[in-house]
Amino acid sequence: MSAEKHSPLAQFEIKQLIPMQIGDLDASFTNSSLFMVLTVLGVSAFLVLGMRKNAHIPGRWQSMAELSYMFIANLMKDTVGNEGRAYFPFIFTVFMFVLFGNLLGMMPYSFTFTSHIVVTFTMALFVFIGVTIIALVKHKMHFFTFFMPPGVPMYMAPLLIPIEIISYLSRPISLSVRLFANMLAGHTLLKVFAGFVISLGLAGIAPLVFVVALTGLEFVIAFLQAYVFAILTCLYLNDALHLH
Protein backbone atom coordinates (compact mmCIF):
# COMPACT_ATOMS: atom_id res chain seq x y z
CA MET A 1 0.00 0.00 0.00
CA SER A 2 2.76 2.39 0.99
CA ALA A 3 4.68 1.74 -2.21
CA GLU A 4 1.59 2.62 -4.17
CA LYS A 5 0.99 5.76 -2.18
CA HIS A 6 4.50 7.02 -2.75
CA SER A 7 4.47 6.51 -6.48
CA PRO A 8 5.27 9.85 -8.12
CA LEU A 9 2.40 9.27 -10.52
CA ALA A 10 -0.23 8.60 -7.87
CA GLN A 11 -1.06 12.29 -7.78
CA PHE A 12 -2.39 12.16 -11.33
CA GLU A 13 -4.87 9.40 -10.64
CA ILE A 14 -8.47 10.14 -11.56
CA LYS A 15 -10.86 9.25 -8.77
CA GLN A 16 -14.61 9.06 -9.17
CA LEU A 17 -16.37 11.21 -6.64
CA ILE A 18 -19.94 10.98 -7.87
CA PRO A 19 -20.41 8.12 -10.35
CA MET A 20 -22.64 9.07 -13.25
CA GLN A 21 -23.55 7.17 -16.36
CA ILE A 22 -25.10 8.68 -19.47
CA GLY A 23 -25.84 5.80 -21.83
CA ASP A 24 -22.52 4.10 -22.44
CA LEU A 25 -20.68 7.22 -21.48
CA ASP A 26 -18.93 7.44 -18.14
CA ALA A 27 -19.72 11.00 -17.10
CA SER A 28 -18.73 10.68 -13.48
CA PHE A 29 -17.86 13.70 -11.43
CA THR A 30 -14.18 13.11 -10.71
CA ASN A 31 -11.50 14.89 -8.74
CA SER A 32 -10.47 16.46 -12.04
CA SER A 33 -13.96 17.89 -12.53
CA LEU A 34 -13.99 19.04 -8.92
CA PHE A 35 -10.85 21.06 -9.42
CA MET A 36 -12.15 22.53 -12.66
CA VAL A 37 -15.25 23.67 -10.81
CA LEU A 38 -13.06 25.07 -8.05
CA THR A 39 -10.99 26.90 -10.65
CA VAL A 40 -14.05 28.46 -12.25
CA LEU A 41 -15.36 29.48 -8.82
CA GLY A 42 -11.93 30.79 -7.85
CA VAL A 43 -11.54 32.90 -10.97
CA SER A 44 -15.08 34.25 -10.63
CA ALA A 45 -14.56 35.09 -6.97
CA PHE A 46 -11.20 36.68 -7.69
CA LEU A 47 -12.59 38.96 -10.36
CA VAL A 48 -16.14 39.65 -9.14
CA LEU A 49 -15.27 40.14 -5.48
CA GLY A 50 -12.12 42.04 -6.41
CA MET A 51 -14.16 44.51 -8.44
CA ARG A 52 -17.15 44.77 -6.10
CA LYS A 53 -16.03 48.11 -4.65
CA ASN A 54 -15.23 49.43 -8.12
CA ALA A 55 -13.13 52.15 -6.53
CA HIS A 56 -11.40 54.88 -8.48
CA ILE A 57 -8.28 54.19 -6.50
CA PRO A 58 -8.05 50.41 -6.46
CA GLY A 59 -7.08 48.48 -3.40
CA ARG A 60 -4.69 45.56 -3.55
CA TRP A 61 -7.25 43.02 -4.64
CA GLN A 62 -8.83 45.27 -7.24
CA SER A 63 -5.36 46.11 -8.52
CA MET A 64 -4.69 42.44 -9.08
CA ALA A 65 -7.96 41.96 -10.93
CA GLU A 66 -7.28 45.02 -13.07
CA LEU A 67 -3.71 43.94 -13.64
CA SER A 68 -4.74 40.57 -15.01
CA TYR A 69 -7.24 42.31 -17.28
CA MET A 70 -4.68 44.80 -18.53
CA PHE A 71 -2.11 42.06 -18.99
CA ILE A 72 -4.26 40.17 -21.48
CA ALA A 73 -5.61 43.37 -23.04
CA ASN A 74 -2.06 44.56 -23.79
CA LEU A 75 -1.04 41.13 -24.97
CA MET A 76 -3.90 41.11 -27.45
CA LYS A 77 -3.20 44.66 -28.57
CA ASP A 78 0.40 43.71 -29.32
CA THR A 79 -0.25 40.43 -31.07
CA VAL A 80 -3.65 40.72 -32.71
CA GLY A 81 -4.36 44.44 -32.90
CA ASN A 82 -7.73 46.10 -32.75
CA GLU A 83 -9.63 43.43 -34.66
CA GLY A 84 -8.88 41.04 -31.84
CA ARG A 85 -10.99 42.94 -29.34
CA ALA A 86 -14.08 40.86 -30.03
CA TYR A 87 -12.21 37.75 -28.91
CA PHE A 88 -10.88 39.23 -25.68
CA PRO A 89 -13.40 37.44 -23.42
CA PHE A 90 -12.38 34.08 -24.82
CA ILE A 91 -8.64 34.62 -24.49
CA PHE A 92 -9.04 36.07 -21.03
CA THR A 93 -11.17 33.12 -19.92
CA VAL A 94 -8.70 30.61 -21.30
CA PHE A 95 -5.79 32.38 -19.64
CA MET A 96 -7.45 32.65 -16.24
CA PHE A 97 -8.69 29.07 -16.38
CA VAL A 98 -5.27 27.65 -17.17
CA LEU A 99 -3.50 29.97 -14.74
CA PHE A 100 -5.77 29.19 -11.81
CA GLY A 101 -5.75 25.51 -12.69
CA ASN A 102 -1.96 25.50 -12.62
CA LEU A 103 -1.79 27.48 -9.40
CA LEU A 104 -4.45 25.39 -7.66
CA GLY A 105 -2.38 22.36 -8.60
CA MET A 106 0.52 23.83 -6.65
CA MET A 107 -1.37 23.42 -3.40
CA PRO A 108 -0.56 20.28 -1.43
CA TYR A 109 -3.10 17.45 -1.80
CA SER A 110 -4.71 19.14 -4.77
CA PHE A 111 -5.13 17.83 -8.28
CA THR A 112 -3.65 19.47 -11.38
CA PHE A 113 -6.13 19.01 -14.19
CA THR A 114 -3.80 20.73 -16.66
CA SER A 115 -1.44 17.77 -16.27
CA HIS A 116 -3.89 15.65 -18.24
CA ILE A 117 -3.60 15.65 -22.00
CA VAL A 118 -7.38 15.13 -22.37
CA VAL A 119 -8.04 18.48 -20.76
CA THR A 120 -5.36 20.47 -22.56
CA PHE A 121 -6.03 18.81 -25.91
CA THR A 122 -9.73 19.57 -25.66
CA MET A 123 -8.92 23.22 -25.04
CA ALA A 124 -6.38 23.30 -27.85
CA LEU A 125 -8.84 21.63 -30.21
CA PHE A 126 -11.47 24.23 -29.39
CA VAL A 127 -8.95 26.98 -30.10
CA PHE A 128 -7.85 25.31 -33.33
CA ILE A 129 -11.35 24.68 -34.68
CA GLY A 130 -12.57 28.10 -33.59
CA VAL A 131 -9.64 29.88 -35.20
CA THR A 132 -10.07 27.92 -38.43
CA ILE A 133 -13.77 28.78 -38.56
CA ILE A 134 -12.99 32.46 -37.95
CA ALA A 135 -10.46 32.40 -40.79
CA LEU A 136 -12.88 30.62 -43.13
CA VAL A 137 -15.70 33.03 -42.36
CA LYS A 138 -13.48 36.07 -42.73
CA HIS A 139 -11.50 35.09 -45.82
CA LYS A 140 -13.76 32.48 -47.44
CA MET A 141 -11.81 30.47 -50.03
CA HIS A 142 -8.93 32.90 -49.78
CA PHE A 143 -8.04 31.12 -46.55
CA PHE A 144 -6.41 28.31 -48.48
CA THR A 145 -3.72 30.60 -49.82
CA PHE A 146 -2.46 30.38 -46.26
CA PHE A 147 -0.85 27.08 -47.16
CA MET A 148 1.10 28.63 -50.02
CA PRO A 149 3.73 31.04 -48.70
CA PRO A 150 4.09 34.20 -50.77
CA GLY A 151 6.88 34.35 -53.32
CA VAL A 152 7.27 30.61 -53.73
CA PRO A 153 7.67 29.24 -57.27
CA MET A 154 4.78 27.12 -58.49
CA TYR A 155 6.79 23.91 -58.93
CA MET A 156 7.48 23.83 -55.21
CA ALA A 157 3.77 23.73 -54.38
CA PRO A 158 3.28 19.94 -54.36
CA LEU A 159 5.98 19.66 -51.71
CA LEU A 160 5.30 22.82 -49.76
CA ILE A 161 1.54 22.58 -49.41
CA PRO A 162 1.59 19.24 -47.56
CA ILE A 163 4.34 20.59 -45.33
CA GLU A 164 2.34 23.70 -44.55
CA ILE A 165 -0.82 21.68 -43.93
CA ILE A 166 0.98 19.35 -41.54
CA SER A 167 2.56 22.35 -39.85
CA TYR A 168 -0.91 23.85 -39.45
CA LEU A 169 -2.43 20.62 -38.16
CA SER A 170 0.38 20.18 -35.65
CA ARG A 171 -0.70 23.34 -33.84
CA PRO A 172 -3.28 21.86 -31.47
CA ILE A 173 -0.87 19.05 -30.60
CA SER A 174 2.07 21.28 -29.82
CA LEU A 175 -0.23 23.68 -27.97
CA SER A 176 -1.68 20.98 -25.73
CA VAL A 177 1.44 18.86 -25.29
CA ARG A 178 3.48 21.86 -24.19
CA LEU A 179 1.15 22.67 -21.31
CA PHE A 180 0.45 19.10 -20.30
CA ALA A 181 4.09 17.96 -20.45
CA ASN A 182 5.33 20.91 -18.45
CA MET A 183 2.83 20.36 -15.67
CA LEU A 184 3.24 16.58 -15.66
CA ALA A 185 7.04 16.71 -15.64
CA GLY A 186 7.20 19.41 -13.00
CA HIS A 187 4.85 17.69 -10.57
CA THR A 188 6.47 14.30 -11.08
CA LEU A 189 9.90 15.77 -10.46
CA LEU A 190 8.68 17.44 -7.28
CA LYS A 191 7.27 14.18 -5.98
CA VAL A 192 10.37 12.17 -6.90
CA PHE A 193 12.69 14.54 -5.06
CA ALA A 194 10.30 14.81 -2.15
CA GLY A 195 10.52 11.02 -1.90
CA PHE A 196 14.31 11.25 -1.58
CA VAL A 197 14.05 13.56 1.41
CA ILE A 198 12.80 10.85 3.75
CA SER A 199 14.72 7.90 2.35
CA LEU A 200 18.10 9.66 2.51
CA GLY A 201 17.76 10.48 6.20
CA LEU A 202 20.09 13.26 7.30
CA ALA A 203 21.49 13.74 3.80
CA GLY A 204 17.92 14.43 2.75
CA ILE A 205 18.54 18.10 3.36
CA ALA A 206 20.07 18.39 -0.11
CA PRO A 207 16.94 17.19 -1.95
CA LEU A 208 14.82 19.24 0.46
CA VAL A 209 16.62 22.40 -0.59
CA PHE A 210 16.21 21.34 -4.18
CA VAL A 211 12.48 20.76 -3.70
CA VAL A 212 12.07 24.22 -2.21
CA ALA A 213 13.83 25.75 -5.21
CA LEU A 214 11.85 23.56 -7.57
CA THR A 215 8.58 24.69 -6.00
CA GLY A 216 9.52 28.25 -6.80
CA LEU A 217 10.35 27.26 -10.35
CA GLU A 218 7.03 25.44 -10.61
CA PHE A 219 5.17 28.61 -9.72
CA VAL A 220 7.00 30.40 -12.51
CA ILE A 221 6.15 27.59 -14.91
CA ALA A 222 2.53 27.62 -13.81
CA PHE A 223 2.30 31.25 -14.81
CA LEU A 224 4.51 30.93 -17.88
CA GLN A 225 2.56 28.09 -19.38
CA ALA A 226 -0.73 29.92 -18.95
CA TYR A 227 0.91 32.90 -20.63
CA VAL A 228 2.28 30.79 -23.46
CA PHE A 229 -1.11 29.16 -23.99
CA ALA A 230 -2.74 32.59 -24.19
CA ILE A 231 -0.09 34.12 -26.44
CA LEU A 232 -0.18 31.17 -28.83
CA THR A 233 -3.94 31.42 -29.05
CA CYS A 234 -3.49 35.11 -29.82
CA LEU A 235 -0.94 34.41 -32.54
CA TYR A 236 -3.17 31.79 -34.14
CA LEU A 237 -6.04 34.24 -33.98
CA ASN A 238 -3.82 36.86 -35.58
CA ASP A 239 -3.00 34.46 -38.41
CA ALA A 240 -6.68 33.75 -38.86
CA LEU A 241 -7.64 37.41 -39.00
CA HIS A 242 -4.78 38.64 -41.17
CA LEU A 243 -3.59 35.47 -42.92
CA HIS A 244 -0.12 36.38 -44.03
Binding site: P150, I231, L235
Partner: peptide, 14 residues
Amino acid sequence: FGYGDNYGQAEENT
Protein backbone atom coordinates in the same frame (compact mmCIF):
# COMPACT_ATOMS: atom_id res chain seq x y z
CA PHE B 1 8.52 35.44 -35.70
CA GLY B 2 7.03 34.04 -32.56
CA TYR B 3 5.24 30.76 -32.56
CA GLY B 4 2.80 31.69 -35.26
CA ASP B 5 3.19 31.07 -38.92
CA ASN B 6 4.04 34.65 -39.64
CA TYR B 7 6.48 35.33 -42.36
CA GLY B 8 7.98 38.38 -40.74
CA GLN B 9 9.39 40.61 -43.43
CA ALA B 10 7.47 38.82 -46.12
CA GLU B 11 4.35 39.99 -44.33
CA GLU B 12 4.99 43.61 -45.21
CA ASN B 13 5.56 42.75 -48.84
CA THR B 14 2.38 40.77 -49.13
